[in-house]
Design a protein around this nucleic acid. Structure first.
Length: 272
DNA sequence: TAATGGTCCTGTTTGC
DNA sequence: TGCAAACAGGACCATT
């Protein structure tokens, strides 16, 4: 059972904020945050890219982003507090509580108005976020065109959440490897066919990760590190520096990229 | 120590 | 020449 089935239809009661950074994007502060949630029913749950939100009554939403280490956990009443417990949500049925646990405090919540963009209701704060490839209304051809209109490095474009959402550093490296493209390839020099190929590869990677429980959307499949078994077993290049490429055997390389890393096969993914 | 990653913010560059 | 949009890169965090 996922988060949706655990939460939808229940009414929030006491909410406790243990770390201010967890609600730093809720500008009205902790008092307003907990006050507006108490007594409200969660009527639906939605997701776009790396954001998820609980739809509340009266056109409001509780918007969440997990950052890089955040977890949403369903825990029985009275279970010991986690070391990095940031927010606790209790419900009026005294059933299991929802907990936000986040070591690095990059994640957090805000209460926001729902607005309608292109026929879809979503929190105003994520109105600029593009549809992700799992979205039934995702426009693959339009995304290929938009990608090729950009004038930047390919990986930067893949990470641009206003172009296509849901792709992060790990999935980008995996998609680039599958499409045999170097991360620094200029977007304006990319054929429509290759642009489509790398986007399709990113979609495949995300879908496979979902199938293997590799996302934080399902609270029950996140381990203590916010990771899943998928990360360790199925990655072709990410974190594999020095190991042989699964296609050609060449040692995987790591290069600095935006204060982090890009992993790639120097033979399969030639810098052009 | 330096590395980790998603987003926000700021400063720079580009294009009309 | 002036302006807006696009782009690049650093800051933010805790932990190992």
């Amino acid at each position: 059972m996922g988060l949706d089935e655990h939460i939808t239809g229940r009414t929030l009661a006491k909410v406790e904020v243990f770390h201010p950074r967890a609600i730093r994007r809720h500008l009205l502060g902790a008092g307003d945050f907990v006050g507006r949630l108490s007594g409200r029913e969660v009527v639906a749950m939605s997701r776009r890219g790396k954001y998820l939100w609980f739809e509340l009554s009266e056109g409001l939403a509780l918007l969440a982003h997990l950052g890089m280490s955040g977890q949403l956990l369903i825990q029985p009443d009275g279970a010991p507090d986690e070391k990095h417990l940031r927010v606790r949500f209790r419900f009026d049925d005294d059933g299991p509580e929802l907990r936000f646990v986040d070591q690095r405090t990059f994640g957090g919540f805000l209460i926001d108005d729902l607005v309608t963009v292109d026929g879809t209701a979503l929190p105003a704060a994520v109105a600029h976020i593009a549809r992700d490839p799992m979205d039934p209304k995702f426009d693959a051809a339009g995304t290929v065109r938009a990608l090729r209109r950009k004038r930047t490095e390919l990986k930067r474009a893949l990470l641009d959440q206003t172009l296509v959402s849901g792709i992060g550093n790990i999935y980008a490296d995996e998609a680039l490897w599958r499409a045999r493209l170097h991360w620094s390839r200029a977007t304006e020099r990319l054929s429509a066919a290759k642009a489509n190929e790398v986007l399709t590869a990113a979609t495949d990677v995300m879908r496979e990760a979902l199938d293997q429980g590799g996302t934080s959307f399902d609270a029950l499949y996140v381990n203590v590190n916010g990771q899943s078994g998928y990360f360790d077993r199925a990655l072709a290049v990410y974190g594999q520096e020095g190991l042989p490429c699964g296609r050609c055997g060449t040692a995987i390389r790591r290069e600095p990229f935006m204060n982090r890393s890009s992993y790639f096969c120097p033979r399969c993914q030639r810098r052009s």
